[in-house]
Computed example of a mutant assay.
Amino acid sequence: MKVVFHASAGPDLAGRLFRLPGLDVSVCREDDTDALFRLLPNCDVLWHVLQRCTAEMIAAAPGLKLIQKIGVGVNTIDLEAAKQRGIPVCNLPGTNARAVAELALGLMLSVLRRIASFDRGLRAGTWTDVAMQDGLGELGGRTVGLVGFGAIPRILAPILAAMGCRVIYTARTRVDDPVAAYRTLDQLLVEADVVSLHLPLVPETEHVIDAEALGRMKPGAILINTGRGGLVDPAALVAALSSGRIAGAGLDVFETEPLPAGDPVLLLPNVVVTPHVGWLTTGTFDRSFLLAAENCRRVASGDPLLNRVI
């Protein structure tokens, strides 16, 4: 079965892909459109990562039997085009949960302790900057609000509690949790010292954190987003960070990706940014490839697919 892995792969990752039994995997960089359209006509399965899967791509693959998201969010796939062709789309919920949870925790600590600023200063020859010591905070003793309560925040909640945090959450479905207490979104924004976003991007959640929501957050609170960039109104966030309405932000995802050079958020000293790599660990890939390969086997045998979206 011919599989196109539409993402860059270093030597270690490529080796893992090429060793998958029963699969003929071709690696195609996200920016190599010519190579992609050479591979698609003979492609049986597309393993989609972050670069958009368009109707044009789907049309160029007459033998396509499956679009497999290596990850969770399918907002970057033209689902209607896949549906019209009768091509199933599957995702891999939970495979990246630990990786994203750990980066979310890392961003919380990085913003509170200004790790990126100290790193830049030391590389520039400044051993210490007394002014930067103002406002340095600890995570322990703070209230952390988790917006969404799926696999990622459920990993985070007990870790945060063990560090001495008070944990609250909001979600469509209220659950009994041993460490996290339920709040409405409005209540969470008012109470939390740290607001961490863990929602899918759907019409109902687009810009759920807008100027009004940022205005309800506690003065001095920080925002963490490892979910989707479109959950946050970027102009409103820049305004809140610039004015000091909120103290800082840790962002792994952005409304426009790749983030353009010179974007206003990059000019703010109270922001820590990473380029949508929360999911990116060898552990995530090992778990993902195991399930993605199983779905390839199921496509070939006609068995029901795992985690089918459409």
Rank of each mutant, 00 (worst) to 15 (best):
H198M: 14
E294M: 00
P21F: 03
F37P: 11
R166Y: 05
G283T: 06
I155E: 04
I115K: 06
A157W: 12
L13R: 07
A61C: 00
L50H: 09
G150F: 06
A180S: 08
A124L: 12
V253Y: 05
S301V: 06
T282R: 10
Q84H: 13
A157M: 05
E80R: 02
P158A: 14
G15W: 01
L305A: 06
M132F: 11
L267K: 10
E80S: 02
V3D: 08
I77W: 05
T173A: 12
G125T: 07
P275F: 11
S110W: 06
V49H: 10
V271W: 08
M108H: 11
N91S: 05
A211M: 06
N75H: 14
G230C: 14
L39Q: 03
A235N: 14
R98Y: 15
A162M: 14
Y169N: 00
P219T: 01
A82W: 08
G141L: 03
Q51P: 14
D303N: 08
Y182C: 13
A101S: 11
L156M: 15
E206D: 03
T126L: 09
A151D: 10
S243A: 15
N270Q: 10
T126Y: 13
N91F: 05
L20Y: 03
V3E: 07
V27Y: 08
G164D: 12
L189A: 00
L223W: 09
G227W: 09
P41R: 02
E191K: 10
A162C: 09
L156K: 01
L23W: 01
M217T: 02
A101F: 15
C43S: 09
P21L: 01
A124H: 08
R142E: 02
N295Q: 13
L107K: 13
G230W: 11
G148A: 04
R297N: 12
R216N: 15
V3M: 03
G73D: 12
V190F: 00
N307A: 12
A247K: 04
P153I: 03
A97H: 11
D32P: 04
A211P: 11
H207V: 00
L92D: 07
A97T: 15
A292N: 06
T256H: 11
V3H: 07
D119S: 02
T184W: 00
D193W: 06
P158G: 15
P304I: 00
G278Y: 15
H276P: 05
A60D: 10
A213L: 08
A236L: 09
C90D: 02
V273I: 14
L39V: 00
L223G: 01
L40M: 07
F37S: 01
P203I: 05
A99P: 09
V195Y: 12
M57W: 00
I168D: 00
L13Q: 05
C296S: 10
L146Y: 12
K2M: 02
T226W: 04
A300N: 07
L112M: 05
L197S: 01
R228F: 13
L305S: 01
P234I: 14
R297V: 15
L50V: 05
S117F: 05
G250P: 14
V190N: 05
L251V: 12
A236D: 10
V265N: 09
L105Y: 15
A7W: 02
A261I: 01
P153D: 07
V299T: 03
M108G: 04
